[in-house]
């Protein structure tokens, strides 16, 4: 426990704000906030943004940003939908063979990885700055999504996909399990692999890692492949939860994931950030959104609150640093 506090001292502030938000929301909704129903609905809503935030965080760790994650999530969903619809013309409702699902999912992940590969090559090998490379691929990916769907909504998917977005194992929602699984795996990758170690070092000083014989290019390539995989998983969850896919789903999530990652302690200039922080930040944003929702406040008030909280937290950090 003491060890935990020592290594996570930087997260204590965030945990404090999280607890405060929880207590305030509970206080405002004494009967409705801490109910199984509400907790479950929160647990269904948070994984999409949560997994996308992890994908954003990975890119931010090297000092970059990935503006294409929402586009990639949609692209994955649309590809899977198109493959399923092509093979099962009647609409792919109900049961689908598991091999068919695997083929469709593989296709969805493949196109996403292809884009990630392109980004990695542009950023790692051609020296394009991450914001520009991903701005370009974002436009391209969104364009491709519109092009292949003609802007329409595709819906009705097999139960196995719906299970990923709406299913439960006992009382626990499947998307939440997926989110926690992603977070755990990512945490191990970042803390215990040479890639993760190299990523933190590269994000702090790219020139020094080059001089230390670290292969920066390979690390950057892997960053964007990993970010794409996470975006695709988020795409699966979104697809299952909405039972539909469309080129412009979730566009407002993009900047929220940056906000959540920074709130969770990820540095915008790279090198610092923990998975646990990102998870806590996403949970906090969800608590605020759900609590305000129960109060009957306009959902956009939650968005304003998120912006304000980020500013307040950054301001507090600044003054605490100045005092130290």
């Amino acid at each position: 426990m003491k060890e935990f506090f020592r290594t996570h001292r930087d997260l204590l502030g965030l945990i404090g704000v999280l607890c405060a938000a929880f207590l305030i929301m509970w206080g405002c909704n004494p009967t409705r906030f801490v109910t199984l129903n509400n907790l479950r609905s929160m647990a269904f809503q948070l994984p999409e943004i949560g997994i996308l935030t992890l994908g954003m965080m990975v890119a931010m760790l090297h000092g970059g940003i990935n503006l294409s994650i929402v586009g990639l999530a949609n692209l994955t969903g649309i590809t899977i939908a198109l493959v399923l619809h092509a093979i099962l013309p009647q609409g792919a409702r109900g049961e689908a063979g598991s091999w068919l699902m695997l083929v469709a999912a593989a296709a969805g992940f493949f196109v996403s990885l292809l884009v990630g590969f392109l980004q990695g090559v542009l950023i790692g090998y051609a020296g394009v700055s991450a914001i520009l490379a991903t701005l370009g691929t974002m436009t391209l990916v969104n364009g491709v999504c519109v092009l292949i769907t003609h802007g329409s909504t595709l819906s009705s998917f097999p139960d196995s996909i719906l299970f990923l977005g709406n299913g439960s194992l006992g009382p626990v929602p499947v998307p939440l399990l997926l989110f926690l699984f992603c977070a755990a795996v990512l945490s191990i990758i970042l803390r215990r692999t040479t890639f993760g170690f190299g990523l933190y070092m590269l994000g702090t000083n790219q020139e020094a890692t080059k001089f230390a014989g670290i292969n920066n290019r390979v690390i950057l390539l892997r960053v964007y492949l990993l970010s794409s995989v996470l975006a695709s998983i988020a795409g699966l969850v979104m697809m299952g939860r909405f039972n539909s896919v469309k080129a412009d789903y979730g566009q407002s999530y993009l900047l929220i994931t940056v906000l959540a990652a920074v709130l969770g302690g990820t540095s915008a200039s790279g090198g610092y950030g923990k998975v646990l922080g990102a998870v806590l930040a996403v949970v906090m944003l969800q608590i605020i959104a759900s609590g305000l929702n129960l109060l009957g406040v306009d959902p956009f008030f939650a968005i304003a609150t998120w912006g304000a909280i980020l500013l307040v937290v950054m301001a507090l950090n600044h003054f605490l640093r100045a005092r130290a």
Partner: peptide, 29 residues
């Protein structure tokens, strides 16, 4: 600028060039 990764720990800076020799059988550090 080129020698040290300023901001990261002393230990991390020491093992930076040989981190791939510290892996266990699961390929983890």
């Amino acid at each position: 600028r080129q020698g040290l990764v300023i901001g990261q720990s002393i230990g991390s800076n020491i093992i930076l060039a040989m981190i791939d020799r510290l892996l266990n059988r699961f390929r983890l550090i």
